[in-house]
Design a protein around this nucleic acid. Structure first.
Lengths: 365, 365
DNA sequence: CCACTTATGTAACCAGTTAACGTATGTCGG
DNA sequence: CCGACATACGTTAACTGGTTACATAAGTGG
């Protein structure tokens, strides 16, 4: 599996560069001695590494700390502004774009609506112009975008092409990654939206300390994402987590039943107020959800089950029955938590995916 | 996730030792120059590494190749007999033990029957005495066993304790790894049998080139194992793949239905001969199997689906309908192959698990 | 202005790797 | 039997990267 190459001396420098860079990014601002203490490396080594990193433009010297004892130490900082990444959520009826620096700090966010039945070219154009507007609006030169990642519903294959979309017209077959790469002339990635939301939760949300995560995006058309070992697990054809397509699970028409009379929000509100019919419909929906969720839970046995997406705003009206049905179906149900992000989770996960790519390919791990 | 420690010079040696050792094990027998060419390291480095390994007893010098041009080169070989591992399959009605050297070469195999309703202590004693007999019979000193791994049906947690067994009496709560460790006074591991069978297929069977694998052990009580990235994925509580417990899947009583009249083998034979009733029953069984399999496939989206276990001997009588139902249920069904091992697959997978442990902990990666 | 504290600069040394070159030990052809 | 050839072995020198040790620089506090 792991290709193991022999090491000449430069391997050491690579390793130590990574260690130092990682420590510096965690600390934000640090002196040579501090970094030495943290990493376990000698001051000299840290200095040599930082010199190299400085030449490459990834590290800058910051003004020294004043008022401290002893000779003032030079301080260094990671240049989070050396490059930027863009994360895009191309949803059914809206587009969310996030611009982040190399520390993952979100600098700007852009939202646009898009018609649910908009043809693919229109949707793509909306995503493109929103992305450009987001970057331009933040005053970042377009050439400084190092990577773009896009999330969307449906099955996205390894190459970033949409292998199958059931809900968006003309979406199947679109080479989302290929097209997004042209927006800024950089590498681009694409993935399933639920997978990206899971990534976001693992990065900064409620799944930070979990290794294996199942994320369920509840909404008009439920979807699921899987993280194994903290990393996105897409599967052979990008379809991992697509349990909803199994007839026995019933996700296909779960929401249909729910919104037969009125909007989902209305049904949830009515159920919250105690309306028996609404309560029954919500319970039915929760049970359908739980069947699919438990199939995923039994297959993967994750540390954590995260519920997000539009309907998750309903709160305990939905979670109560869901928890009950889950406990009923699973041998030992994992902890169940709600998403900590609103409708930005997919874009945020896309940012994380783009950053992963940058860290691996450009910063070199 | 990956703890990244800084590297002093000795890290290089560690890496190069691993590279060299790996190359030597692959080649079987090699000279310094050959190893240098393979690994990309200089002859001196290879020599220094092999000296160290020789002192530790892991490498020996073999007689030089005769009849070749030039000065005869010293040849080295990995000492596969430096240590041994034992893999045990503690099944419902039989126990299979395999003894292997550090190359994974199986030197001896021992089988014992055990009553399906035997209490836990009796089953454990049978496993213990079969293991000892296997090792003693091969003329290997008991102290030279470096690791033992055991596989059994049911949910086995991280520590090697059986968290839940539905089929074996008194089996739930047994600390299988802890007890097996006492047999030879070495580290011991325990895992679910289907998981181990999957590992065996990935190691030497029909799943060698797959990264993500779902293995389904078909039999009186179907079970499933999951490999992600070529590595065993057990999940939080060891229950990954336990899709059979989901009522909608129907694995619980799938076999019941099959064997209602006569044994399974008889039903399969009758179906093979064209008996309509038997054909219907097999088809029903295949459909149940396919529902659970497709839940796993949709959750994990593996590269390969492997079918093994007792009933897999039935062949196309079962696989035909199974394939059909799978294609029906999955968006894009993965390749389906049969296990290449007979009833040794679990013991062989246990050997692999023990070897993994040895290679990681003792040979040090 | 002096003591103290902390960072920097320099030099010596160590571990691991590689390259170069001479030497040893076999086969092959006469 | 002997010389040409091929290949491996042994030794030395040089390089890279890292660490320790110690003298020196540049601040703060009394």
């Amino acid at each position: 599996m792991t290709e193991l190459r022999p090491g000449d001396a430069s391997l050491l420098r690579k390793v130590n560069t990574q260690v130092t860079l990682r420590a510096l990014r965690r600390e934000g601002l640090a002196t040579l001695t501090q970094l030495g203490r943290i990493t376990g490396l000698s001051r000299q080594t840290v200095e040599a590494v930082l010199d190299e990193l400085g030449e490459r433009g990834w590290v800058r010297e910051a003004p020294p700390d004043e008022g401290a004892m002893g000779r003032p130490a030079r301080r260094y900082a990671f240049r989070a502004d050396a490059g930027y990444v863009v994360g895009v959520d191309v949803g059914g009826d809206r587009i969310v774009v996030s611009l982040a620096d190399l520390n993952g700090e979100v600098l700007a966010c852009e939202r646009t609506g898009v018609a649910g039945d908009a043809p693919a070219p229109e949707r793509l154009e909306a995503a493109r112009s929103a992305s450009l507007a987001c970057v331009d609006g933040a005053g970042v030169a377009r050439t400084r975008i190092w990577a773009v990642a896009a999330g969307t519903s449906g099955i996205v294959d390894r190459s970033g092409r949409i292998a199958l979309s059931m809900s968006l017209p003309g979406w199947t077959g679109v080479d989302l990654a290929g097209l997004a790469g042209r927006w800024f002339g950089c590498t681009a990635l694409a993935a399933n939206d639920a997978n990206l939301a899971a990534l976001a939760e693992h990065w900064r949300g409620s799944a930070q300390h979990a290794s294996d995560v199942v994320y369920i995006l509840v909404g008009h058309r439920p979807g699921a994402g899987v993280l194994i070992g903290g990393r996105l697990h897409a599967g052979r054809s990008g379809a991992a987590g697509e349990i909803g397509t199994l007839r026995q699970v019933g996700w296909e028409d779960a929401a249909m039943e729910l919104v037969k009379e009125g909007s989902a929000a209305e049904v949830f509100a009515a159920a919250d107020a105690g309306d028996p019919g609404a309560l029954r419909r919500v319970d039915q929906y929760a049970e359908n959800l739980a069947i699919g969720a438990s199939a995923l839970v039994l297959a993967v046995d994750p540390d954590l089950l995260v519920i997000g997406g539009g309907y998750s705003r309903a709160g305990d009206v939905l979670f109560g029955p869901l928890r009950r049905h889950l406990a009923d179906l699973c041998v030992s149900a994992p902890e169940l938590v709600t998403s900590t992000f609103g409708d930005e989770s997919v874009a945020l996960g896309a940012v994380r995916l783009a950053l992963d790519h940058v860290e691996r390919e450009i910063l070199g791990l």
